[in-house]
Every structure is written in C-alpha cells, then in structure tokens.
Design a protein around this nucleic acid. Sequence first.
DNA 1: CTGTCCATTTCGACG
DNA 2: CGTCGAAGTGGACAG
Lengths: 262, 262
Amino acid sequence: MVAEQIDAPDPETLVSEAKAAFRDGALLSVQARCEVEYDGRTSGYLGPGDRLLVAKPDGTFLVHQPTGHKPVNWMPGGGTVSARVSDGEAVLLARRTNPTERVEARILDAHGLTRFDATDGATYEESGTEAEMHEYIESNPDVLEEGLRIVEHERESKYGFIDFFARDESGTPVVVEVKRIQATLNHFDQLQRYVSLYEERESSPQEGGVAAGNDEVRGMLVAPSASERVKRALRDNGLEFVGLSEFETDAKGATEAKLTDF
Amino acid sequence: MVAEQIDAPDPETLVSEAKAAFRDGALLSVQARCEVEYDGRTSGYLGPGDRLLVAKPDGTFLVHQPTGHKPVNWMPGGGTVSARVSDGEAVLLARRTNPTERVEARILDAHGLTRFDATDGATYEESGTEAEMHEYIESNPDVLEEGLRIVEHERESKYGFIDFFARDESGTPVVVEVKRIQATLNHFDQLQRYVSLYEERESSPQEGGVAAGNDEVRGMLVAPSASERVKRALRDNGLEFVGLSEFETDAKGATEAKLTDF
DNA sequence: CTGTCCATTTCGACG
DNA sequence: CGTCGAAGTGGACAG
C-alpha cells in the first residue's frame, strides 16, 4: 500500500497518523479548516479557512490556500514537523533554527488525510539557462560585435565574477555582463562596478604588457532587452547595451538545422 | 461532503474526477507516480517517480517531489488545467499564455486522489516588513542620527527610487537607503548610484535655492548589520553605515507595552 | 500595460 | 558557514 487515505479524521487519529508518517518518512497531506501562525524573520497570522497542508519527510511544511501559486505559509526543509493534540484540537508545528522560526497550524476541522510512502529517484533536467547562453556566446562572440575575441570566461575579480573578459578588434579590453532576462538597474550596477575595477587595474598594470589607457576599458551589457532607463544609465556612464534575444546551444542548433533540412 | 477521497483511481476515473473538480472549482490533490515535462521560458523533463500533484481552481498547478520546499514544476494561476486519457494513461496539462508555457504530467500509477471543496475568505496578516521599518524611521528619524529631518519618502530620481531624502542638523542633504536584512554589496551599489546622482544635481541646481557643495551630499545605508566588506566599501566611498536592528511599529509597541504592564 | 523593487525570497556554488 | 548572484523567480505598487 503506497498511499493510505482517511476521511474526516478526528484530532487523535490525525495526530497519530501524522506521527506515524513523520516516523516512517512518508509524505503527509491534510485537507482541513485551520488557522495558521508564523513567527520568525517576520511574523503573521492567518484566520480560519480551508487549506491544504503538506508535510514532507525532510521537514518541509506547506500551507496552501485554494488560490495562489505560493504557499501562504511554509517551512523549508531541514527543520522538524511535529503533531500534538491541544485543547481538543490537532496542531501541526514546523520548526527550525538558523534562522529560528516556526509555523503552527491549528486544525479546526479535518476533512481528509493522505499518507503517501513516496519514492522518487529522478532529478529535474533543465535547458535554456543562462549557462547555455554563455556557451552560445563563447562559441559565437561575433553576435556581440564583429571581431570580438573572448579572452576569459567567468573571470574572478576582487568584487565578483565577470561573465566575459574580451578584447575588441583593436585590442581594447571589453568587460561583458550577460543576462538571460531583461536587464535591470541592478545589472547596470554590477557592470559599472566591474568596469571601474578594471579601469583601476588597467591603469596600473602589474602584469607586464597588458596595459591600456584608463578610459580604454569598454563595458557591455548583453540581454534580450532593457528598459529605457537602464539604457540611459548605461549611455550616461559610457557603457554599451547589446540586445541578444535568441540563442541556441550547439546541440539545439544542430537539431533545428536538421528540421529545416527538409 | 467537503472532501472526497478515491483510492488508487484508474485513468478514466482520475480524468473524470479531475474534470469534475475543475468544473466545480474544487482543489484537487493526486498522489501518483508520474513523469513531467515543462516547456516555456526554459524547458525541462523529470523522469518517473512518486509526486504530489495539486491543481487549484484558479489554474495553479504544482508538482511536488517528496523533498524540497519548492515545487519541481508548477504553473501560476491564470491559466487552465485540463485532464485527458492518452495511450491508456491519465495526463494532467496546465497551460497559460504571456508567457506561453505548459506543464504536462503523465500519470503512470495513481495511488490516491482527493477532491476538496475548499472555501477560504481569510487573508494573511503580516508584520515586520521593510514597509514597517520605513514607517518606524519616518516617525523616529532620530534613531538614524540626532537632528535628522526626513524631507521625502520614496523620492523618485532619474535612476530609481530613493528610500529617504533627508537633511542633517546643518542642512546637508542625506540620501538614505534602508534594508530589512543584512546589507550586501548590491545595496552599497544602489546607494552609491543614488548619491552620485544627487551630487550631480546638487552641483548644478536647476531649482533655485537648494544648491549645496558637490561633496556635501551624504549617503547612509541603514540595515540591521553589514559584512566588513560592505562597511569598507561604504567607508572607501565616503558613505555611512547605520545599524538598526530593532524596530517597532506604533501598534506593535503599544501591544507589547500592554503585555508588560502586568 | 511596463518599470521598479521587496521577499519569511529560495537555491546553488564557491571560498 | 557566510557571501554572492540566478531564478521558469513571484508579487505589489506606481506611472
């Protein structure tokens, strides 16, 4: 029996089933009218209503209202979930430390309970990430600018990693920051910080022969799009925006090439 | 009957129950071995394993593995969830547009199903947010510095919003950036950006009478704490850090005063 | 609608 | 264990 369901459990049954599920590492779902309290980084209270409660064997606890994508209250994995009867009502309590916080659901009326002895060895495989965008640019630097040469990928600097350190056709250094989504002011900040750092470094060369003029360092923000305000911030500070909306990994490109062969 | 449970439904039963739940605006939970595909902003695939599937009446669709706080796949509300039998297996499909994306769960083995006719009129009440920290500062500017006057809250500038624009005891402008959590380098970046802007503006006054010397603009980062690196960055750039860990809204303070009256 | 910024952000990688 | 940056970020709020 992988899943066991109990209809409208009374508080004692609910608590004993919950304890058994926690002990055995099963996933517990409860449909119930309840009220919820959170205390930790902030604090909050949710009055009585019907919700789906989920407790996972890793200590994750979720409170889902009938609408909305995010749980109204939750506890990440790593802590512990416990169950007890208090004042004749079942209470589920999720706690953790660092930071110290707790979610407590007082169950006023339990409509259903499911214990699920789930096993899942699969991991999610994703594609289309920023990492793949980097691969594409590394293989096709010309899409950013004719004649651009990538010198280093993920170059470490005092203030963080620079996505690409490159040189343009005339040898001028170019600091490149890549975003998979529309560029924000924070991304502009990042690029600005990196470029100013390189201006310092380039103006006082410590490794011989790599010197360049102080203002000769270019900064390039690559993203599918950017708001006018971001573009102006870049322009005002001598930085550049390059729109790059479409990209393909070599594998993906090869696949699509095949499809268009016909 | 608020919740209805079905044990190990066959594909046809699962699909007809799901359709009925979607039609009636009920919350549907399914414990099942399944494989999941996502296509949209990125794309991904999750091989067979046991998961909890949740479909809400607002179009929300969640796929939860036995561990982890976040759903491995999901669809926010606003779209539609549909069910069908395909190749003898039940399939749940969640779709939306803008952006166009889809999550498809192919159910290989359904262990349990619960339909929950949930009603929930309550809304979550939260306290301890950054908005409340702003209110506290606005009412008690002295906690930042003796004699500080708040001139404007959420002041819009060319490059973004400034939390507080203030003047110190001697009338020097102070740009204040507030963070509820430990300050990061990005927060320093933000403050730096705002201050540099005000230095420009103040040095070439367009609205008469507000002029001040170019270096007379102060920048203040307010947060419960900051790493040494952030503090040094601030110091090196002539900016200031103010630690503000405890704050209370008027209401909260009143409540706590009550409790300690006894 | 877009733009901007907060979030109990979470999550992962790296030093 | 802190720090930093990405996320299918989501969500609220203003223009």
